[in-house]
Structure formats: structure tokens, C-alpha cells
Amino acid sequence: MPHATDPPAHGPVPDGAPGPAPRTPDGAPATAVRSRVALRVNGVHHELDLDHRVTLLDTLREHLDLTGAKKGCDHGQCGACTVLVEGRRANSCLLLAVALHGCEITTVEGLAGPDDTLHPLQRAFMEHDAFQCGYCTPGQLCSAVGALREAAAGHPSHATAAAALAVPGPAALSAEEVRERLSGNLCRCGAYPAIVRAVTDAGADAAATAAGAEVTP
């Protein structure tokens, strides 16, 4: 898993190819209610013919049989559907697939390494028993990956103290910071304390690795 220092901007650059207005990605007439949509999901390129109403979440679950991302509320109120879009965490239930044409998506199925080595966060979640029913877990994991990247890139949170807000730089993740940054992911089993420990552990490991990398030529 790359540890980005700066979360890339949401969405790729406009897909070039200036053309006559208004148009759809493949130039179909604007009355069409379906489009060809290209998505790269967990490193695999997909070309799909999708009804415009289909969300990214339903694309993953119903069209690509990637059911790791969960539907908890379908309205951006629970976080179970969280995936990484262009490296940033997002609620996939509120994203229309057609609007993501050309985007890179990572789901929980894509967190482990190519040899099935678990992501440090996945290992930490198992070590700390950071889930019970498991339904919010994929969203928690993707959210935690995104949150650690955001912290590394210096994104503040509601829990960030005034002094740290004024001076940008990588954010130190106290338990309070982790709690706030992961509050977009509800867990009804109440695994929060274990989730915080898991993310704090994995975050510290990642930070140590990053620090080690800096001094190594």
C-alpha cells in the first residue's frame, strides 16, 4: 500500500478530448440514461454499461461482485460503504458511477498485498478484536487508510488544537484525533475503543516506517 504524503485531488483531470457541448463520456446523446463507464478497481480496469442511477456502491456490489463495501444506510449517514476514490476516502453510496468515469477505486478487497499479505490495518483490526458483526469493518478499514493518509498530509480535524491548526504539518494522532477522524463510520456493536487502538497502533507503525525511510539513504 503506498503511503501517500499528499492525498491526491478528488477525481482525475478532465478527460481531455474537448468536444462539442453537451456530451457524455463516449459522446452519446444527452438524452441517454445509460453510459459506458470506465473504472479501475483494485488495479483492474473495468468497462461497464451503466444506468446513470447506479451508484459506485451498487456498481461494486451488484455489477462487479465486490461485496466488501457495505450498504448500511445508502444515504451517507453510516460510512459502511467507505472506499478510496483516487486515494481518498469517500461514501460510495453517494457517488454516481457515471461521474467517476476514469477514476481509480480501492475497496477493502484491494487493501491486502498481491500475495494476500494483509494490510497493517487489517492485521491490527484482527489483533485488537476491532469488530464483532463485521458489517462496518470494510468501511472502517478504508476510512482508516484514508484518515492516516490525511493525517500524514497534514489535514486537521475538529479535534486538532488551535496551535496545530495554525501551523500546518503532519498531524499527530492522539486517541482523541483518531476518534474524531473515524466518526464518519458508525459501529453499532460498539467496537470503537478497539478500533481506536488498532488504528493508533497501525498509524504509529506507519509513522515509524516513514521516519525510518527518511534516514535511510
Binding site: 478532465p14 478527460d15 474537448p18 457541448a21 453537451p22 456530451r23 457524455t24 463520456p25 444527452a30 438524452t31 441517454a32 440514461v33 453510459s35 444506468d51 446513470h52 442511477r53 454516481l96 457515471v98 461521474a99 468515469h101
Partner: peptide
Amino acid sequence: RPFAYVRATSLQEAADA
């Protein structure tokens, strides 16, 4: 309900659409 989708590449294109 089903809807059409237009990705605008300029402000004017968006306004026209």
C-alpha cells in the same frame, strides 16, 4: 427516475447544457 448525464468541461458548456 432515469436521467441524462452531461459532463461539462467549461462554464459556458455547463450553462448551455
